[in-house]
Write a protein that binds this DNA or RNA. Structure first.
Length: 819
RNA sequence: GCCCAGGUGGUGGAAUUGGUAGACACGCCAGACUUAGGAUCUGGUGCGGAGACGCGUGAAGGUUCAAGUCCUUUCCUGGGUACCA
């Protein structure tokens, strides 16, 4: 009578949805709110960057991070933490709007459908989220508070309106996002795109530049991400210096420089083509040339700013500035390598010590005056009482600046590259901005904020999602909605909507208190959960989302709404998952792997294990379907050792106390508990799984020898396995007769005595080469060891009777003999 | 150009942080079981060599009893960013 062979595939297929349902019903992933039972435990807030629910569903790259945080959270729950691990949807965005334009289906319907798909996929991988806290940025109950936050920003003077150039496509009659433009042409249709100033809402993130920079030091984030943000904020320290116009010395323009020490080396000046004082400088003779140049530049920047404009083009204005110290005439040029939106839009050019200035001088035949020698000391720079020759550059810079300051000609200045945040989009599918423009006033003038009671301002239905053609959002076509009367007064509603990053800039706080109708979150909730302890998401958000969120969080801090200065204490980026061909996964390459197919073939637990086993979480690595065989076989082997072909517990699983196990079995278990726990804490899931495999492989061999499987061994093993392969662990756990869930059982403790080796194998080096090995008790005395080592034949052969110069013994590591 | 990662077997990756390089897994080779195997099991597998041994962590130097790990120079790959004064 032969039993049916155990098949892990079948096993997985039979148990997965069963356990997924039980976990949901038992609410094993529920985080306790302050005051509720469970809240007395230490808290652990672990967050995944929430996805945009696209129509394509997940590919195997998406769950990589989700599986990692899921394992970490399962482990933390077992370690006795009150774990908050929520999930939600970054639901506003372009694809749903474009789909609506094509089909007329409201984006909220498309989104709702996609969310169902996503949720199903995530659940099928046993990703344990507290779905009671699910949020969607496009839900009026949620965006009510995004609008409320906007009001607060406006009230604090952090939101303002300005004319700002946007990507305008005349052929499509719409404003385009940067990623809708390819090589200066619209993605759809390939029509030309130009810059056109339009009224926009802006947020004053620049006001927080210094704090955003400073507080980076306190964060446990990848150094590369912090550096990225530092570069993005782009702090430069230097000076602002006044240069008077020769034609009218009462007028002056200011320049910013990081190198005030080179002031005496200025041989020409350059203004940006948009500089307001440009036309005060242009001479009659040069007027036509300058006009032509400015028009060309305007065109050039429209043409996607290719490398073409690195040619250091420029035109002499015909005008001169006066050197602030020597009153010498300095020719002023206009050139597009000077940008109006950085510094002051004007520079002093020092061709001797600046590469760009030097190139420009070369092209246009301008003089070069060196003011620094090879040792980095100033030369040719003394002026009246200001003696700086011979000083190192930093000292010289300081002296020159204070000299200028005393004469009222300049001062110290700090400049940032960071720009204010353009916070409006001419789109339908976004949060409506809750303001009213008084009729008669300028649109960019003061606005009336909607009352709190009138929030949320819901997106009104429209007949057509196509842009209005004027560049305004589709909302502008709703005349009845736009025209608003309040008593005597008439208003126009704002038709711009907020950008995608609005809702994602505070969602981590909403999860703490997602159903609050009175406030965005309660102070009890935030004082309990504090901040995100561990945040995982793609490196592509290194500046955008991660900078905006920090900005808003700091504003909330200033408002007394949060008590932490930073939203995300620890951050890790998961690496990109490449296709099997080592290329980025994309539909067009045809190398996309769908997790549903993999789960159907190998089971969710094999899939979870494989994704984690592939390598370090942060690393970019290629998907290899063949690699799944490994984790699949491992689970198969382990299960078969304890379950028979009918899915029942094998009779050889017996209640044998640990004291009666072979000591090796016990030792290996305790060492593995230690090792696996440490690996999880380090997020080194690949080595944790490797340790699980080793433990299983070796112990299984032992079981065949001893003819039984100790029940306690299985229980302990299942608790180690549970975070990684929860279905499998849970099923066997229940086969052992447990009525509770392994998911909430405590993480095993190890006995430090048993988790150490009694004997180790040492390598023996003679003159740096490995010449032998020896197995010795860990606590062997050095004399004893030395005698044993020197007795080894091969060692003797290499020593060859020569005297020992040195005998090095590093305990438990190595023996090194020098002759 | 600048900034940031990173180069270890045929492949994904380990390496107790200066201590036996290649754990674990894929693949491959051989064998067992089998009517059959794309199932399962056993053994082997860095390269050269019959072997003793030699050589091996992108390359070249250096420090050290000992270097994948530290230092100097250099090459390559990936990501970000770009005329930022």
């Amino acid at each position: 009578m032969s039993q049916p062979e155990f098949s892990f595939k079948e096993f997985a297929h039979n148990i997965e949805s069963k356990w997924q349902k039980i976990w949901q019903d038992k609410k094993v992933y529920k985080a306790a709110n302050p005051g509720e039972p469970g809240a007395e435990k230490p808290k652990f807030y672990c967050l995944d960057m929430f996805p945009y629910p696209s129509g394509q569903g997940l590919h195997v790259g998406h769950p990589l991070g989700y599986i990692a945080t899921d394992i970490l959270c399962r482990y933390k729950r077992m370690k006795g933490f009150n774990v908050l691990h929520p999930m939600g949807w970054d639901a506003f965005g372009l694809p749903a709007e474009q789909y609506a334009i094509q089909t007329g289906i409201h984006p909220s319907q498309t989104t709702a459908k996609n969310i169902i798909t996503y949720k199903k996929q995530l659940t099928s991988l046993a990703l344990g989220y507290d779905w009671d806290r699910e949020i969607s940025t496009a839900d009026p109950k949620y965006y009510k508070w995004t609008q409320w936050i906007f009001k607060k920003l406006y009230e604090r003077g952090l939101a303002y309106q300005a004319e700002f150039p946007v990507n305008w496509c005349p052929a499509l009659g719409t404003v385009l996002a940067n990623d809708e433009i390819i090589d200066g042409k619209s993605e759809r249709g390939g029509h030309p795109v130009e810059k056109r100033p339009m009224r926009q809402w802006m947020l004053k993130i620049t006001e927080y530049a210094e704090r955003l920079l400073e507080d980076l030091d306190s964060l446990d984030w990848p150094e590369s991400t912090k550096e990225h943000q530092r570069n993005w904020i782009g702090k430069s320290e230097g000076g602002q210096i006044k240069f008077a116009l020769q034609s009218d010395p009462k007028k002056y323009f200011e320049i910013f420089t990081t190198r005030p020490d080179t002031l005496m080396g200025v041989t020409f000046m350059v203004l940006a083509p948009e500089h307001p004082l440009l036309w005060d400088l242009v001479s009659v003779e040069q007027k036509a040339k300058v006009e032509k140049y400015c028009i060309e530049t305007a065109k050039k920047s429209d043409l996607a700013r290719t490398d073409l404009n690195k040619d250091k083009s420029g035109v002499f204005t015909g005008g001169y500035a006066l050197h602030p110290l020597t009153q010498e005439k300095i020719p002023v040029w206009v050139a597009d390598y000077v940008l109006m939106n950085y510094g002051t839009g004007a520079i002093m050019a020092v061709p001797a010590h600046d590469d760009r200035d030097q190139e420009f001088a070369k092209v246009h035949g301008l003089p070069v005056v060196p003011v620094i020698d090879e040792e980095g000391r100033l030369i040719n720079s003394d002026f009246s009482s200001m003696k700086v020759n011979g000083l190192p550059v930093t000292e010289g810079a300081q002296k020159i600046l204070s000299f200028l300051e005393s004469k009222g000609l300049g001062q110290k200045q700090i400049t940032y590259k960071l720009r204010d945040w353009v916070f409006s989009r001419q789109r339908y599918w976004g949060e409506p901005i809750p303001v009213l423009h008084p009729v008669g006033g300028a649109m960019t003038g003061d606005v009336k904020l909607l009352e709190d009671a009138d929030l949320p301002l819901e997106l009104p239905p429209v007949d057509d999602y196509k842009p209005s053609g004027s560049g305004e959002s589709p909302l502008a076509t709703l005349k009845d909605w736009v025209n608003y009367r309040e008593g005597e007064k008439s208003f126009l509603r704002e038709t711009n909507t907020m950008p995608g990053s609005a809702g994602s800039s505070w969602y981590f706080l909403r999860y703490m208190d997602p159903h609050n109708n009175e406030k965005p979150w309660s102070s009890e909730a935030v004082s309990y959960w504090q901040q995100v302890d561990f945040y995982l998401g793609g490196a592509e958000h290194a500046v955008g989302h991660l900078l905006y969120s920090r900005f808003w969080h700091k504003v909330f801090f200033d408002m007394g709404l949060v008590s932490t200065k930073e939203p995300f204490k620890r951050l890790i980026h998961q690496g990109m998952m490449l296709g099997e061909d080592n290329e980025k996964m994309s539909k067009s390459r045809g190398n996309v792997v769908n997790p549903d197919d993999v789960v159907a073939q190998y089971g969710a637990d094999s899939f979870r294990l494989y994704e984690m086993f592939m390598g370090p979480l942060e690393k970019t690595k290629p998907w290899q379907t063949g690699g799944l065989e490994g984790t699949y076989r491992y689970l198969n082997r382990f299960c078969r050792a304890v379950i028979d072909g009918e899915g029942k517990l094998q009779s050889r699983v017996e209640n044998i106390p640990e004291s009666e196990w072979p000591s090796e079995l016990s030792k290996q278990m305790h060492m593995s508990i230690k090792q696996i726990g440490e690996a999880i804490e380090k997020l080194s899931f690949n080595t944790a799984i490797s340790a699980l495999m080793v433990l299983s492989n070796e112990s299984l061999k032992e079981f065949d020898k001893i003819q039984y499987v100790p029940r306690l061994w299985v229980e302990t093993y299942l608790r180690l396995l549970a975070p990684f392969a929860p279905h499998t662990a849970e099923e066997i756990w229940s086969l052992l007769g447990h009525r509770d869930t392994v998911t909430l059982s405590p993480w095993p403790e190890y006995d430090p005595e048993k988790a150490t080796l009694d004997e180790v194998e040492l390598g023996i080096q003679v003159n740096g080469k490995l010449r032998g090995k020896i197995v010795i008790p860990v606590d062997i005395a050095e004399d004893e060891l030395k005698a044993q080592v020197l007795a080894i034949e091969n060692v003797q052969r290499w020593i060859d009777g020569k005297p020992l110069k040195k005998f090095v013994y590093v305990k438990g590591r190595i023996v090194s003999i020098v002759i």
